[in-house]
Design a protein around this nucleic acid. Sequence first.
DNA 1: AGTTTGACATGATGCCCATCATACGAAATA
DNA 2: TATTTCGTATGATGGGCATCATGTCAAACT
Lengths: 199, 199
Amino acid sequence: MQTRLEKKQESRRRILQSASKRLRREGLNGAGVASVMDDAGLTHGAFYSHFRNKGELARAALEEALLHNRKRWTGKWRDGSWSKHLSRLASRYLTTKHRDNPEDGCALAALCSEAARSDPDFQQAYETELLKTLRAIGGDIEADIEGQKRDDVLAFFSLVVGAIALSRAVSSEQLSNDILESAKEAAGKLVSGEIKNEH
Amino acid sequence: MQTRLEKKQESRRRILQSASKRLRREGLNGAGVASVMDDAGLTHGAFYSHFRNKGELARAALEEALLHNRKRWTGKWRDGSWSKHLSRLASRYLTTKHRDNPEDGCALAALCSEAARSDPDFQQAYETELLKTLRAIGGDIEADIEGQKRDDVLAFFSLVVGAIALSRAVSSEQLSNDILESAKEAAGKLVSGEIKNEH
DNA sequence: AGTTTGACATGATGCCCATCATACGAAATA
DNA sequence: TATTTCGTATGATGGGCATCATGTCAAACT
């Protein structure tokens, strides 16, 4: 049997899980309190003993979403050139599977245009998660990245986020696939100078 | 004095004007019937003698938005290399002014993540407008573009749309500016082979 | 001039949603 | 065993929103 605290934590986990999925599939407005709680097997009234309001849930769900799958697309920069590294990451990220399953995908891409219209707290969380992701792309989850490498990573992430967003926005599957393919090919080209791998 | 038809057309023009601005500043959900009609100097009830429903308005407003400012960012490919051409377009598009004034900016960027969740009719319109824009980037509003040039244009547009979206989503102005700058620098690099200007 | 038309206004209607008030019941505590 | 605590359920409450019903008035038409 579970203690009361454990049960609450388990409930919170389920709420965050369903919120993070709804957030990515249906956007900031789609992730309504009632539907999220329903997914979690609870009723809407129980929501407020876990979160103060919907905004707080959205922030927590964003963090939850990125916590679990940032590693899926980034990982260490082990061997090969800097350009190859970015190419490999693009190939992992720009798949039809990712495009077709936003609820398990990258929340930064799923919300890129809506985040601009969200409240300041959410934007702050978005920026924090973005920065963590940029570091992970640079090959290191911990340290800040600088200079040319930072510029490359910024442009790289703009490219792949834009490509995923456009590939989802469009109704023809052919065009959608072409967007993903062209961005994959471009990803390795946008580095300017070669950068040494210090490992 | 105006005839009745002229007055109606004038009203429709004002409705579309305010809808296209609200759509870009506040998104698909923000462009509510009441607020749009209010901007146009009318009341909500009059809406339904101009459009069948909100979805039809959204489609028309998207077209309106792109009709008026596609030329601002594209224009003819006159001289210089293909790579220079794309660089120049990126410099025109990725400005802080564009970032800070979405209501006068590119609707494809403003709605890129929400469009994925819109109804099929809207997605179809989004795709149509996107294709027109890609042709204009390629230097020609009329003809379809193909092959390597098409791939370059697809990747180019993913890059600049992603950059504008991310630059708006983030709360630090420094980071936001850096995103725009890095994408501007990257834009000219993502072409693979040189392409001849047939003019 | 009398009649019809249609753009527009006012005011429902009904739905969805976030939030709150209250009640229940089981676990924790005494 | 008696009492307290608190996660959850039920059921308001109120606001926002799209859509529709109805009325009005001026222009168009006969």
